[in-house]
Design a protein around this nucleic acid. Sequence first.
DNA 1: ACGCAATCAGACAGCGCTGTCAAGAATGAA
DNA 2: TTCATTCTTGACAGCGCTGTCTGATTGCGT
Lengths: 340, 340
Amino acid sequence: MSSKITIHDVARQSGVSIKTVSRVLNREPNVKADTRDRVQAAVAALHYRPNISARSLAGSKAYLIGVFFDNPSPGYITDVQLGAIARCREEGYHLIVEPIDSTAADLEAQIAPMLATLRMDGVILTAPVCDHPVVLAALEREGVPYVRISPGGELDRSASVGMDDRLAAYEMTKHLIGLGHSDIGFIMGHPDHGASRARHQGFMAAMADSGLTVRSERVEQGYFSFRSGFEAAERLLGGEDRPTAIFASNDDMALGVMAVANRLRLNVPETLSVAGFDDTPGAKVVWPQLTTVRQPISAMAGAAADMLLNGVTWEEGDAPPSKLLDFELVIRESTGPAAT
Amino acid sequence: MSSKITIHDVARQSGVSIKTVSRVLNREPNVKADTRDRVQAAVAALHYRPNISARSLAGSKAYLIGVFFDNPSPGYITDVQLGAIARCREEGYHLIVEPIDSTAADLEAQIAPMLATLRMDGVILTAPVCDHPVVLAALEREGVPYVRISPGGELDRSASVGMDDRLAAYEMTKHLIGLGHSDIGFIMGHPDHGASRARHQGFMAAMADSGLTVRSERVEQGYFSFRSGFEAAERLLGGEDRPTAIFASNDDMALGVMAVANRLRLNVPETLSVAGFDDTPGAKVVWPQLTTVRQPISAMAGAAADMLLNGVTWEEGDAPPSKLLDFELVIRESTGPAAT
DNA sequence: ACGCAATCAGACAGCGCTGTCAAGAATGAA
DNA sequence: TTCATTCTTGACAGCGCTGTCTGATTGCGT
C-alpha cells in the first residue's frame, strides 16, 4: 500500500506553498512558468494524486457525473457509458451509474438522498427516465444540472442532445419506397418513450409525401421488446393480405419480425423486407443482417458530458442549449426490392 | 436548490451533540434508544443527508465501489452493474464504472491515478481485466481490495466468485448426448478468457465419460464473437461430413452457427442442434430460441459486492474466499433429437 | 447506602484540499 | 525616480464529517 502522499509533500519537495501547488494542479493563471515546472516535476516524481474527497469538500466541484437509466437495452446503456466516460476522463471526472426504477412508488425517496449525498456536478439522463417528472423535479430542487438524451418533450426545460428521429424514420421509409414497396407495415415503439412518436410521424410523412396511403391495420402498437415485435408481426403477417415490407421502430422488434418471417417461411428480403432502428449489436447477429438506423449514442453521451463539464447555462427565457447529432442509415441485407 | 443542511443542524434540532448524530448515522452502539429516535426524527424532518465527501475525507471509507471491465458483451456488463448496485445501495455505497482498455500500453498510467484519487473501498473485476497482471498489481500496490468474477487463473491471489464452467459445459454436453448425438462439434472461446478452457474441458470430459471420441476437426477455435462463430461454423458445416450438433462456448458464437445453418438451409434443430452458453438477451431473439447455460451474472456481482462491503480478508497462507454460484441449463428449441 | 464497571454523550482535533485576502515582487507610466 | 498597477505567492480559515479521548450517567452487586 503506497502510503498516501499529500499536496503537502509536493509543496515541500518543490519549495513552494501548498496553495501554489493547488494552483498548478487546477491550471489557475498567475503562476510563473518556472514555478509551475518545478511543481509539475515534483508531482511527477512523487506520483502525487490529489484526493478527490478533499477536493470536493473544500471546493465546489465533486468531479462526479451521474448517469441515470432505467433499463433500456444493455447495448444502449453501455454505449452511453462509454461515450460519457471518454469525455469525463479528459477532465479527471468519474462516472457514477444509477439504475432507476421509474415505476417505483418511492422514486423520490430513492433519488433525493443520492443527489444530496453525492452532490454530483451533473447528471446525464436517458429515456425513459429523462421524461420522468419526479426525477426532473428532484434534480431541479437539488440544483443538480442535467442534460437529457433524446427527451420526449418539454425541450425547453433543460439542455438536451438527440438526433432527428423523425427525419431518420422518414429517410428509412423513403429507402423502402425507393425499393418499390408501397404496402409497408409499421410497428410503433413504447408510448412512454419520446422517440416513438417522432418515428411514427416520420414514417407517415414519408408515405404521404410519396402519395401512398397507410391502411390503419398496417400500423401496430409495439413496446420496443422482441416479444411485442413478434406479436405485432404475427398480426401483420398472419393472413393472406400482407405488406411487402415492415419497418419496426427499433431493432429488437425488427428481430421479432424476422423470427415470425422465419417461422412462416417468408424469405427475407425476397418476400418481406424488414427494417429496424438503433443498430444494436443484435442487428448484425441475424441472418440476413438487419437494415437499420445507426444512432450516434456514444457521441450523444459525449456531447451531454461535454455540456455538463462546461457548465450548461442559458438565459431565463431563452431556449436551453440543445444539440442534434447526425444519424446514419445502415443498409444491410434485410431490405430488398419489392416482389412484383 | 435546497440549501445544504448539515449534521450540525440535526444536532441542534435534536438537542444532542454533533458526534452523537454521527453515531446514530453510522449505527454505532452505545446510543440510548430514546436518543437515537430523537435524532432519527430530526434527520427525517430536515431531510438531512450526510455529505459523502466529508465522510470519506474524515473517515476511512469512501462509499465507492468500482467496476472495471473491458468490453465483454453489453448484456454482461449491465447485469454486473445491476447486481452490484443492488447490494451497494443497501449500504449507501455507489458504483463507479471504469472501462479499461487492457491492450493499452499505458494501462498503468491510466489506472494508478484513478485508484489514488478515488480511494475506492473495493473493486469488482470482470474478465478479461480480472486476469490482467498490470491491473492486479496496481490494485495491490494501492491497497485496494478487489474481487474477481470468473477469473481464469491464480485463484489464490484474491477473493473471487464464479460458477463451475466446466461442470456446466459437461452437463450441456450430456444433454446433447442424451438426445442421441454422438458426433458433436465444439467451438472454443477466446484463449485469453479463463472460462474458455474450463468449458472445453467439460465438453471433452462428458464425451469421454460417454465413451465418445472427439475428432480433432470437430473442435474449432473461436473468439467469443459472432463473426468467429460464424467462421468456425462454416468450417464445421462446410462439407458433406458434418456433426449433428454444435456446442459453442458462448451465445454470440452460437448465433453465428445458427446464421450459417440458416444460410445452408440446415433446419435447426431437426438437422442440426445448436447449444450456446451465457443466456444473453440474443438467445431469445433468434428463431428457434437458443438452448444455453444461464450464468447467474447479477448474483455473482452481488456476491462480489457483498464480499467487498464486508471486508474480504483471509489469513496469509489460507486460500482466499471464493464463492461458486449455481448455473442453470436453459433448454429451448435449438436442440433436439439427433437425426437417425 | 457505596463503589466499580459498563453505558452514554460531548469536546476537540484534524482528514487534504480550495477560497479569500493580503503582502511582496515586478512592471509600466509619469 | 516615484507611484500606481498588475502579477505572483503565501497565510489562514474552514468544507462537513469521523476518530479519539475524556467526562457524565447509569446499573448492579453487596
